[in-house]
Nucleic acid binder design. Structure first.
Lengths: 149, 149
DNA sequence: TCATATTGACAAGTTACATGTCACTATGAC
DNA sequence: GTCATAGTGACATGTAACTTGTCAATATGA
């Protein structure tokens, strides 16, 4: 029955996430990054300079916490503040040369590992899995809200 | 490319888990349970009486934390201590009538919701997704360990 | 019987967040 | 321009879900 399979799939999300984040964390050893500062740098790497609230929106966590993560990356000179023409009080955060090299190296290493894993899977099944998981996530989301829609 | 799809699938595990746990949490409103005490009761419901270390092993978290969760369920009389013939100092934890009714109601409600969701999916795609996610989790697990195997 | 392991209880520490407040700064309607 | 309203950085505090360490009581097995 689909119901039971779906139930098992839902509860597999936690082990998958834990395994994934542990693997990422291990890949971060020696870089001085944490899983969360890695996430900030990845946003800047993928989308270019952004303000703290913009990064927070992308990461779907609140701006106050992102602020502390960004402050850490500023302190370790992985990022810098740049003048924001659109808002004088809210500078754009951008990668420094070091920051760019660091995150690029991390992402490249991760992609290499995933490339190795990918050999055990074929395109069609992964595409199906991705589609199912995406639809499932969207279907579950409203159920967690105050007033489920 | 399979690699990119796989990468996206890996990073979807967190949103899926968050959506799933938020939905579970919402279903717990009014029962006095938390996501974690629910997990303890579910183990007892599915596998029968168990000691604290046994529950911890099933949940893959440490016994000290499980002990505090179990103590909460004992305090709210959802569970009771029963003599353990195999170990005098480590009682078996079992559901009370109230505990059994509570967890049965919660699980039934969850299964009903999943049943509704299941109508948007077909058996084959969910089976494929489950298989991919299981294999992916097992493949990622060793990468997070000290000495990746 | 005696070394070793298991268990419950308790204390602390940690991580990854959320929430609330303040002062400052923009922005847009007028 | 002016003024209500919203966005922002900084800071403080709170919280859930853990981990780690320790101790004394108790088992277990050679």
């Amino acid at each position: 029955m689909t119901k039971d399979l779906l139930y098992r799939l839902i509860w597999l999300s936690r082990p998958l996430m834990q395994a994934a984040e542990a693997a990422v964390d291990r890949g971060l050893a020696g870089t001085g990054l944490t899983v969360r500062t890695r996430a900030v740098l990845e946003i800047l790497h993928d989308f270019g300079d952004a303000t703290v609230p913009e990064i927070a929106h992308r990461l779907e966590i609140n701006r106050q916490y992102v602020q502390t993560m960004v402050n850490e990356t500023l302190a370790s000179e992985l990022t810098v503040r740049r003048a924001n023409p659109r808002h004088r009080a809210s500078p754009l955060i951008g990668l420094t040369a070091t920051g760019r090299e660091t995150i690029a190296a991390v992402l490249a290493a991760e992609r290499k590992l995933v490339g190795d894993l990918a050999q055990s899977f074929d395109d069609a099944e992964v595409a199906t899995a991705l589609d199912v998981v995406q639809r499932l996530t969207e279907a579950l989301r409203p159920l967690g809200r105050e007033r489920p829609a």
